[in-house]
Write a protein that binds this DNA or RNA. Structure first.
Length: 785
RNA sequence: UGCCCUAUAGCUCAAUUGGCAGAGCGCCGGAUUCUGGUUCCGGAGGUUCUAGGUUCGACUCCUAGUAGGGCAACCA
């Protein structure tokens, strides 16, 4: 037997995650960039700590894998830790079974949380103390309204809510009520603990969110100890803080929770405190990811369980035969970002094939057999042929013996009576090589009464034996199995679960169930070569020319050997045939040429008062309508502008610099009392206009002005800034740069005009930003064109 | 209707933070191959959502839009 012990599913995780030298790390996703920044700036001292925080209420799926890989890889990359924390604050949905499944699947993926296994339910005591502290600080209160009342007074997205009548209840009273809630004195729903924030907030989450509810339910870990349970919004940030998490990563829909997260942590913890960052969850073509929908599939018997190989659950994928390393690889390939996405399954399949290519030994198995009689092969004889388990390019050792007999099976699709062009397989009179054996020629086609082909009669060229030194070559090689020596096996051919890419996108009156692919599972009998007939579970094979297959461990438990098709091989022939039969729809009929937007009138949205103000600004200062409209609608900016414009004689330039340069550097609060004096600002604009400063230099001075409050002339003086506009002085730099990059000069002359930006950048760098870019550009163009 | 997030190649993501628009997958072609697999080489594919503006220079900054997603559980 070939050595493929490295196939064990608990194989070690990729160890290439260790601290790689910075220059070898190509592109960094935004979370890595944040962490880099935090480490550099010293916001985070010591190791980074992240966490994977599932609620144990269902089976983990590929979406969880994305989060698991993200968090654990980050911890490994930065030499920090990743905690596994179960967010088990809702006793009604949670179960130990799911905890076990989660832990098993994380381990399967190859990650280890070591001692860092935590449960929010272990923090109940601490969280309760924090709730009390919040009340004491007058930041929370016990509300005795009903659920309906709370909901009704929360307001809507467009109207603000109203305060609860209990909002100003004395602190002692809330404290007492909370204590009695904890004692179990009240029934479910009688009271809740609410944060005292702002019922008028535009963020619904901040409208006095509920922190604790009474729920006399038995918790799978704490039993009946607690009649009250904290909600996610309370438990999660505080659990993060308790554990010293530095970076708390979650999915996009939690972004509106972040202000509450910050509010709680800031009121209850000291500075080194966790920060939450959100990234998009994974969507995958042709499947669904929501727990509810997955549960429906299981409950309604649409699939055979959580671990059905068509399911996107990790247990399903494992049973299907997706190696953990491939799943991990896939999670790395998809990246991390904030845009909603739907990933092409082709990427998953690529990761699986690429992984299995070097891991799965090759054997022969005929899925849809048709009989071939080798007419010149002695009846009853069994010729043992030695066959390598691996193709040459893989380079692994190992072979097995394959028996050849007079009657063999070949794949029905490998014969065509009337073949199309470039069909390299069997047809009447044509030759093909039997893999690991001989070249045969098809002499005769036998049909049954119904006209169906029942048997092919072929003759062997005995000089063409594989490895026998024959130089004969034929175009096609096909797989085969001996009729008498082959073994019948069960094979399950899986296809995508849904017939549309996005099953969530349904027409009226339909549900995702209506999108199920009725042919997602085909169970067939196949014939496998004897060497592979008695395998044990957790075995992968490539059935040559068919795909990768995995011996189903569940069926094996039940005493059956069933091969799951993990994934097909790439099939460029099949693809080509398909496109012949159904030619691609000619170029998508151009998406109804969008009407180019008309330039909008910048004055359009203004009310009459703003409008007349804008007119006034235009006539008084000769501003563009855009700039006038901008200033007309903003009081702080307009005041600043008028003052600055008054001290100089270039209102248009002042407006430009204010709107495009100064304003973006300032927060709204800063704009109210600008850190830059209008007169100074006007001076700066003048310095730019008279070409003392380049735009770049002026921007630099402006930033300095904001931080120091100094006059621009002082800064310029101090730094000795002065724009170089003299052609002769700049020519030297230009020549130097062009001489340093002859290949790029050639590329430019070849038409890659964008390189002008590169040359500009180089010259600007060499001159410390003091060159007059207009002059430089002119010089460059003169030299290059 | 309010607030928040997002928009770059068919898909998923980059772009040294204002200076050459790239990668992987997918697709097409060629070479190699006893798997129509693998590997190697090459190619096509871009209105950087739109329109204006600032700038020597805009995927990046400003303005106004458009489209998609999220938020009104005592779920997480």
């Amino acid at each position: 037997m070939a050595d493929y012990s490295n196939l064990h599913p608990l194989s070690a995780p990729a160890d290439d995650a260790g601290a790689a030298p910075a220059e070898s790390r190509k592109s960094r996703h935004f979370i890595q960039q944040i962490i880099d920044e935090d480490l550099n700036s010293g916001r985070v001292k010591g190791d980074i700590v992240v966490r994977f925080p599932p609620e144990p209420n269902g089976y983990p799926h590929i979406g969880h894998a994305k989060a698991i890989v993200l968090n654990f890889s980050l911890a490994a990359e930065y030499g920090g830790r990743c905690h596994l924390r179960f967010d088990d604050t809702n006793p009604e949905t949670e179960d130990m079974e799911y905890v076990r499944a989660m832990k098993r699947d994380i381990h399967w993926l190859g990650f280890d949380w070591g001692d860092n296994e935590y449960y929010a339910s272990d923090y109940f005591e601490q969280l309760y103390e924090m709730a009390k502290r919040l009340i004491e600080k007058d930041l929370a209160y016990v509300d005795s309204q009903t659920g309906e009342e709370i909901r009704a007074t929360r307001g809507t997205v467009t109207t603000s809510g109203t305060n609860s009548p209990y909002r100003d209840r004395p602190i002692d009273e809330s404290l007492d009520l909370l204590r009695r809630m904890r004692e179990g004195e009240f029934d479910d729903g009688a009271h809740v603990l609410r944060a005292k924030i702002d019922m008028a907030s535009t963020n619904m989450l901040m409208r006095d969110p509920v922190l604790y509810r009474i729920k006399k339910a038995s918790h799978y870990r704490r039993g009946d100890e607690w009649p009250i349970y904290p909600l996610y919004d309370f438990a999660h940030p505080l659990s993060d803080a308790i554990e010293g998490i530095t970076h708390s990563l979650c999915t996009l829909e939690f972004d509106v929770h972040r202000p509450l997260y910050d509010w709680l942590v800031e009121h209850l913890f000291e500075v080194p405190r966790p920060h939450q960052y959100e990234s998009a969850r994974l969507n995958l073509d042709y499947t669904v990811m929501s727990k509810r929908k997955l549960l429906t599939l299981v409950k309604d018997g649409r699939v055979q369980g959580w671990d059905d190989p068509r399911m996107p659950t990790l247990s399903g994928m494992r049973r299907r035969g997706y190696p953990a390393s491939a799943v991990r690889r896939f999670c790395e390939l998809i990246g991390v970002a904030k845009a909603d996405n739907r990933v092409d399954v082709a990427l998953l399949e690529y990761a699986v094939r690429d992984d299995l290519n070097t891991k799965a030994p090759r054997v022969m198995c005929v899925l849809d057999p048709i009989k071939v009689v080798l007419t010149n092969f002695e009846d009853g004889k069994v010729e043992k042929l030695e066959a390598d388990y691996w193709p040459h390019d893989i380079g692994h050792e190992g072979s097995r013996s394959v028996p050849l007999t007079r009657e063999i099976w070949i794949e029905r699709s490998d014969f065509m009576e009337d073949p199309p062009k470039k069909f390299h397989r069997l047809s009447p009179g044509a030759e093909v090589r039997l893999r690991h054996a001989y070249i045969i020629r098809c002499d005769e086609v036998i049909k049954d009464a119904a006209g169906e082909i029942s048997e092919l009669r072929c003759s062997i060229d005995f000089d063409s034996r594989s490895g026998g030194g024959s130089s004969r070559r034929v175009k096609g090689t096909i797989h085969w199995v001996s009729v008498t020596e082959g073994v019948e096996v069960d094979v399950r051919l899986y296809d995508r679960l849904f017939s549309v890419a996005n099953p969530d996108d349904v027409q009226e009156g339909q549900t995702f169930i209506d999108q199920l692919n009725p042919e997602s599972l085909r169970e067939i009998k196949a014939i496998i070569e004897p060497a592979a007939a008695s395998e044990e579970p957790e075995t992968w094979y490539q059935f040559e020319r068919q795909g990768y297959f995995y011996l189903d461990p569940v069926a094996f438990e039940e005493g059956k050997r069933v091969w799951n098709r993990t994934v097909t091989l790439r099939d460029s022939w099949g693809r080509k045939q398909e496109s012949v039969e159904a030619p691609k729809p000619k170029k998508a009929p151009k998406p109804a040429q969008e009407v180019p937007a008309e330039p909008v009138d910048p004055m359009e949205g203004l009310d009459s008062e703003e409008h007349s103000m804008a007119i006034e600004l235009q006539t008084l200062y000769a501003l563009t309508p855009e700039d006038a409209a901008f200033l007309a609608t903003r009081d702080d900016e307009r005041v600043f502008f008028k003052e600055a414009a008054a001290t100089g004689d270039q209102p248009v330039a002042v407006a430009n610099w204010l709107i495009h340069e100064l304003r973006p550097l300032l927060s709204d609060e800063q704009m109210e009392t600008p850190p830059v004096k209008p007169g100074h600002f006007s001076d700066l604009v003048a310095l730019h206009s008279d070409k003392t400063l380049s735009s770049r230099m002026a921007r630099e001075v402006l930033e300095e002005m904001i931080t120091s409050g100094d006059a621009p002339n002082d800064i310029v003086e101090r730094k000795g800034m002065r724009q170089i506009s003299d052609e002769d002085a700049l020519l030297g730099f230009v020549d130097e740069v062009l001489a340093a990059f002859p290949d790029r000069v050639a590329a430019y002359k070849d038409g890659k005009k964008g390189l002008i930006g590169f040359f500009m950048g180089q010259v600007m760098q060499k001159t410390g930003g003091s060159a007059n870019p207009q002059v430089v550009r002119g010089l460059l163009q003169q030299k290059l064109d």
